[in-house]
Design a protein around this nucleic acid. Structure first.
Lengths: 112, 112
DNA sequence: CTGTTACTTAGCATTATGGCTAATCATGAC
DNA sequence: GTCATGATTAGCCATAATGCTAAGTAACAG
């Protein structure tokens, strides 16, 4: 299994493109074949394929081919894992800010 | 104010680099001058400056110059906003999955 | 078996990203 | 003033990302 840091990079990289975010949003409606996913983007199929590859490498979607159509579906658990990271970061920042504010408040009271 | 979608792109793009994530983590310890932020990365100063620019454009940090040193600090509210987007996406996906599971379960019970 | 459909692969052009060095600017210390 | 320090700007290089077209494969339809 790849490094956690590497995985985060892949996920954020994948999410950084508006086209890919739109495709993810589209997938919230359920599993969808490649060509239907491509249609609203107005992009050429090979281009869409590469976006899908990026999303799949990041584990944000999974795909399965049956016959000649490939179905794509979202993987919410990856988003959850990413939110965990963000949530952790934010918590540390906020905790610090709170401590700082408390300190300033204490100093202020002493001053009164 | 820029488009919401554009902002998300900037944020995710900024978060997609491990060096920048490390710098953000470093900033959880509080405001830090550019050179101290640069030291642990082992990168040249101009390189670090560009990372900072990316982070600032994404509103993930704010910086202020006093004298000849520039202090950098984290902006947790931007992370929060980003989590909101993710949380929304995930909620839709999960809701759908739940519905699907409920449906399958119902079908299963009928079958019994 | 022939044609159509749905992807897939290969290759190319353009732009963005991430790194560097060298040179410049601005402030603070002597 | 002169010099050191911290940051900044300019410019270069290598690689990766995003788009395309054209050609190839694979399954289904008749």
């Amino acid at each position: 299994m790849a490094n956690h840091d590497t995985k985060l990079s892949l996920i954020f990289q994948a999410l950084s493109d508006p086209t890919r975010r739109a495709m993810l949003a589209h997938l919230s409606q359920g599993a969808v074949p490649v060509s239907e996913l491509a249609r609203p983007t107005g992009l050429a199929l090979p281009t869409v394929m590469r976006h899908l590859q990026v999303l799949e490498d990041a584990a944000l979607i999974s795909t399965e081919k049956t016959g000649r159509t490939r179905m794509c579906s979202a993987r919410p658990e990856t988003l959850s894992a990413t939110m965990d990271w963000m949530s952790e970061q934010r918590a540390i920042w906020v905790a610090r800010t709170d401590r700082l504010e408390a300190m300033l408040k204490t100093l202020g009271e002493k001053d009164t």
